[in-house]
Simulated assay, not measured.
Amino acid sequence: MYIDQTTIINYGILASISWNSNKWEDDPSIEDLKRSKYDYVKDNAHMHESLNFGHDKFPTEEDGYYIGYTPMFNRAPDIKNSRNVQVVFFTSSDYKNSNRKTIIGFYGFPLFGEWFKRTPENKLYKKYDSGNIKAFPENIIFFQNPIVINNEIVQSNNLLPKGKKISQQGFNYLNSDNVYNLIKLALSLNAKNKKLKFFVEKFPLLEKLAKEEFDLEDFISIVGIITADTLKEIEKLEKKMKGQQPEIKQRISNYIERGAISNKVKKLNNYKCSICEALGNPTNSFIKANGDTYIETHHVEPVSTIKTGVLSVTNLMTVCANHHRQLHYGKAQLTENTEKHFKFIIDEKKIFISKVKIE
């Protein structure tokens, strides 16, 4: 089934599993079991997905398949809806890092929809004796550097279908564009993963990825696991940003503008446009479904200048979409930048804007 000639719906699935401190190739730790988000795991002290990425360590079945598990498939996906699925990504919440959600790897060209019994002789196969998804080991890829995601990231990077949020109770279907973007991010993060590159080369939809030259200093490689949700994390980004290309710096700027710090700045400014306010006008924007006024954040000193502090909160201001574009492309000039305020000349009018402070 197609949305158009290039986008295939339900081409992939994003399914969650419990966190395993031993990289899903051995028993979980006691803390993993106690802090799992799944009641079955906590109640039974048993994590069936413990060997999901043990495909290079444990024996395969006679037919060459390696068996894995996700609680999301305990109720099998609808056969009709999942007939196009070529990749199943696994996501897990890292309780050791503020429960940040990460995509840790995938099964390519998988079989699922029923229970599969593990038959080879192995002591751990007696404990973890079956699963509900399988793939050939060469198509099972573990990310040494996982993809950090949240609902802001998946929408801004087109990692889920438009309007969808990460499922809390089941799994998400992905269209072919989402799959493409996820694997592109995985490549940027795991540039030395030869197995991932080989998978891309033989995967029809991703042929053009194999032909692209990926900048190893790409945005995701720089950001890594930094969420830009605290002042200290933004300071880390500022240090890592030095010496990068202008495009990369701008993407880091955009990343921060969508983060938790940005949301705090918006809240402190009561979701108002600083320029509209300075001009004595109501904020020129609309009301979102949650009741907040839609507002954006803007780095006053361009990130590309590499000046110390360009990623800091004191360089952020809140603006409506119209004034945001005007600051970038219109008749607007920053004439003063002090510890406490900015001074602009916009359409020949002098405007003073107080800076935001977050302790």
Rank of each mutant, 00 (worst) to 15 (best):
K165G: 01
N175R: 03
Q169I: 15
N181H: 11
S176T: 15
K162Q: 11
Q168M: 12
V148E: 10
A186E: 03
G170K: 12
S156V: 08
S176R: 12
V179S: 05
L185I: 14
Y173Q: 13
L185K: 05
K184S: 08
I147V: 11
I153H: 04
N193L: 01
A191G: 04
N157H: 12
L182M: 14
L160V: 07
N157P: 02
I183Q: 13
L185N: 06
S167K: 03
P161N: 12
P161A: 02
Q168F: 08
Q168D: 13
Q155I: 09
L189R: 12
N178I: 13
P161R: 06
S167N: 14
K195M: 02
L159A: 01
L159K: 02
K194R: 06
S188N: 10
P161H: 07
L189Q: 06
L182Y: 03
L174I: 10
S167A: 04
G170A: 10
G170T: 15
Y180D: 09
N181E: 08
E152K: 06
Q169S: 13
L196T: 00
V148Q: 11
N150P: 09
A186S: 14
I147F: 15
I153E: 13
I149F: 07
K184F: 00
E152V: 14
A191L: 00
S188Y: 03
G163V: 03
K165W: 01
N150H: 11
N193R: 00
V154W: 02
K197H: 09
N151M: 10
I149M: 09
S176I: 14
D177F: 02
K192N: 13
I183M: 10
N175D: 15
L160K: 06
N151F: 07
E152S: 12
L189G: 06
P161C: 09
N190Y: 03
N157D: 05
Y180H: 15
S176C: 14
I153N: 07
V154Y: 11
L185P: 01
N193S: 08
A191Q: 01
N172G: 10
S156N: 14
F198C: 01
A191P: 00
S176E: 15
Y173N: 11
K164E: 09
Y173D: 06
E152D: 11
N158S: 06
E152R: 02
Q155H: 02
L159C: 05
L185M: 04
A186N: 05
N175P: 11
E152W: 00
K195Y: 04
N193T: 05
K164T: 08
S176K: 06
F171W: 04
N178Q: 10
L189T: 12
N150T: 07
N172Y: 10
V154F: 02
I183C: 13
N150V: 07
Q155G: 08
L174Q: 15
V179A: 14
I153A: 07
N190M: 00
L159D: 06
A186L: 01
G170H: 09
V148L: 14
G163M: 13
A186G: 15
